[in-house]
């Protein structure tokens, strides 16, 4: 009888520091992944948590992990050669076929950039798949900016706008302000032909989505990625249920026509 809770050991091949509290881990793992999906990551004796796959390739996956709790504190002490236990992948990722030939705008807040990283990389390598790609990313402060190297690369491939909520330290040459401000000012030439992905903290997603709707984007052309407490990842534990949906099954990526109607 197959046991869906059994994890497998995956060796850490590489660790990259993104910020003081965010590190990217590349694991040796042969998995079928769609951008936006997640895996359950664990260390026996410490715990298990859902983490979105930020990038993947042949025989490897990457996750960008913020130090926020018991498990991630321990993970942050791991080095290449150590291993993590993982199971998955779970959930539904981004429906790439719906973005083909469209103007795609990705609005990401903070660590919300991680689940869309693979998309940005994919479209960087296959520019013909979408008509255009714009990344609007917001971070709390300049120190919280993730994927600095990749952002520089994406700037050469896509339109990229970065903003920070505040610049306490000073010296940030870029924009300061909420991401909703970027959305409000974003030139959208053909709203009816524009598709949007919004990923980030709950408040950021709510207000960004409303802003896009205000800009004339149709609800069915907006996708969001929900973050919820999940234990099992397979629709059993009940933590991520909202209304008739399980975020781990029907999400985490949901079309706004579904997400917006979920009553919680």
């Amino acid at each position: 009888m197959s046991n869906p809770y059994l994890p497998f050991r995956a060796a850490i091949i590489e660790v990259r520091r993104e910020t003081a509290v965010d590190f990217t881990y590349r694991l040796e793992a042969d998995m079928q992944v769609a951008g936006g999906q997640f895996v359950e990551v664990s260390i026996p004796g410490v715990g298990e948590a859902p983490i979105s796959v930020s990038d993947f390739g042949d025989g490897w996956i990457e996750m960008t992990i913020r130090r926020v709790g018991r498990l991630t504190n321990v993970i942050h002490h791991l080095r290449p050669g150590n291993s993590l236990f993982i199971r998955g992948t779970y959930g539904r990722g981004f429906p790439l076929e719906r973005y083909a030939g469209k103007d795609l705008i990705i609005a990401a807040g903070g660590t919300g950039l991680a689940p869309v990283k693979s998309l940005l990389n994919r479209y960087g390598g296959n520019p013909g798949e979408v008509k255009s790609l714009t990344l609007l990313a917001g971070f709390k402060t300049p120190a919280d900016i993730l994927f600095r190297d990749e952002i520089e690369r994406w700037r050469r491939q896509h339109r990229v706008e970065i903003t920070v909520d505040r610049d306490d330290a000073g010296g940030w040459p870029g924009r300061v302000g909420l991401i909703t401000g970027l959305i409000a000012r974003e030139p959208i030439s053909q709203p009816e032909n524009t598709v949007v992905i919004v990923v980030g903290p709950p408040a950021m997603m709510k207000f960004s989505t409303l802003e896009f709707i205000k800009r004339g984007i149709k609800q069915e052309n907006i996708w969001v990625s929900f973050e919820r407490k999940m234990c099992c990842g397979i629709g059993k534990c009940g933590h991520c249920k909202i209304d008739g949906a399980y975020v781990c099954l029907e999400g985490p990526v949901l079309n706004y026509t579904t997400a917006g109607r979920l009553m919680d």
């Binding site: 869906p4 809770y5 629709g235 399980y246």
Partner: peptide, 9 residues
Amino acid sequence: RNGGRVDSY
């Protein structure tokens, strides 16, 4: 049944 996976336990 939910989600298509069986909880073996």
